[in-house]
Amino acid sequence: MSDDILPRLAGGDPGAAEECMDRYGALVWSLARRHTRLAAEAEDAVQEVFLSLWKNADRFDPSKASEAAFITMIARRRLIDLHRRKERRPEGSTVESELERMPDFKSSVIEYRAEASLAARALRKLQPKEREAVILSVYQGMSHSEISSYLGLPLGTVKTHIRRGLKRVRETLAGDDLALQRAAK
């Protein structure tokens, strides 16, 4: 039986809101902190993200993605809308450290880890510059121009790297692996 919260949220379950916050609050907070400069901005962004989630909960389709991936997608949309024109710079961690941190997920038991695991595997198969461009763009929130300067690559090359990299991740997610992992649950 599924323990997804969003269908219950869409159905008006009074306890689902708190459960959703407890399960995904840290994820959304982490996203908001990386996509905003100030803590106060992140707090406002989190409120908007959860409001958007409430409104879109009935669109969640577990056959297409895990709940965590759906929530991350909605959060990213909202955060990019909110801060599109603001310059963002990465703080602290480097691309290399992000790659080292990616776990192997060999003993994953939670469904959303399957998507993360497949994404990590797809990223590892990319050319180093492609992988760096995708992580700098998607995870660290750098603009394509910033990545171009940071990596010393032409802007067009950066755009191509990101597009190809995301296509590779997309193809991996669409493959049999995820379906098999879901069926095995």
Binding site: M21, G25, A26, L27, V28, W29, S30, L31, R33, V46, K64, A65, A68, A69, F70, T72, M73, R76, R77, E98, E100, R101, M102, P103, F105, Y112, R113, E115, A116, S117, L118, A119, A120, L123, V134, I135, V138, Y139, L166, K167, V169, R170, L173, A174
Partner: peptide, 26 residues
């Protein structure tokens, strides 16, 4: 599917952070 690919990359990086207990709670 492109948005979900980006979300999966985001989750992969975040999971790595969480596994090192560096993830900041809300």
């Amino acid at each position: 599917s492109f948005e979900l690919a980006a979300a999966a990359v985001e989750l992969a990086c975040w999971q790595g952070l969480e596994s090192e207990s560096e993830s900041e709670p809300m």
